[in-house]
Nucleic acid binder design. Structure first.
Ligand code: MN
Ligand code: MN
Ligand code: ZN
Ligand code: ZN
Lengths: 136, 136
DNA sequence: TGGCCAATCTGGACTTTGTCTAATCTCGCG
DNA sequence: CGCGAGATTAGACAAAGTCCAGATTGGCCA
């Protein structure tokens, strides 16, 4: 799969998102890199050549993508949220010193023995984060 | 175990923390409740009667407690960190709508199939968060 | 007892992440 | 064309957290 800007328009439409120039650029930043990016990093990525997308639009758009299920969010760093082009259930490895965040495939991992949920509650997701640091 | 202020002094000393009035109050707020509290909530708990502990001291002290292993931090909410008087390995259930955070005992939960760590890395911790929401 | 001084605490300025709003822009359609 | 719903924008605002220089504390020794 090649994440060209042209393909982004179709991807957006398939998630019921009206493909505008800014939205295409933001989707392209996330999907072409296939990396976890913070709002700030998206902002920088999208405005490298010249300033074309405002902070408000970056935040609005990431929230829209999240609602529409185009991206997921990863909460590992107390100071910022990361946005993830991978929406399949998967886990994360977080290198505490460097802030590097990478995926762990959910296929091989198995979680068992979780207690039953409180009444009237449904699981929204299970986040598993392995926090690692460079050997001291 | 009764978490009186007097017992807090000994608890602090056993973690190589000089027990000052403010530190005792902050530890007491966390341990007597046995709940997950944000810095803001600690601040409020400690200053109910009359203002006695500054914001800077609350943040400094929570960071000190964390370094000394007296409390742990839980990162589930993108807008604030929770501090946890429970430092034994355990998991969390997070009710997204209400923000309620509760413990899941690690004893019964089993996680298997995690890939080997990158070279020269050691696990600092494994965070498992079950995000739930009220049935729609 | 009183003074010293290292550790601690403090108010408040500052930074960063994120939100909000009112004004402006865009673009497909009649 | 030109309308208007939806989208974008600048910049004010809010909340969490950090930082610093000065004030306080309290244990210890003369
Ligand atoms: Mn462009
Ligand atoms: Mn008191
Ligand atoms: Zn991921
Ligand atoms: Zn806990």
């Amino acid at each position: 799969m090649n994440y060209t800007r042209d393909n982004m328009a179709g991807l957006l439409r398939s998630h019921e998102i009206n493909p505008t120039h800014q939205r295409i650029e933001i989707a392209h930043a996330l999907f072409s890199r296939q990396e976890h990016l913070s709002a700030d990093q998206v902002m920088a990525a999208v405005n490298t050549r010249h300033s074309e997308t405002s902070k408000a639009t970056v935040y609005n758009t990431l929230k829209l993508f999240l609602e529409k299920g185009l991206v997921s969010e990863v909460i590992v760093d107390p100071s910022k949220v990361f946005y993830d082009p991978n929406t399949t259930p998967h886990h994360h490895l977080y290198e505490v010193d460097s802030g590097k965040l990478s995926d762990i495939d959910a296929g091989s991992v198995q979680i068992s023995g979780l207690p039953p949920l409180p009444d009237g509650m449904v699981t929204e997701g299970i986040d598993l984060i392995v926090r690692v640091r460079r050997q001291p």
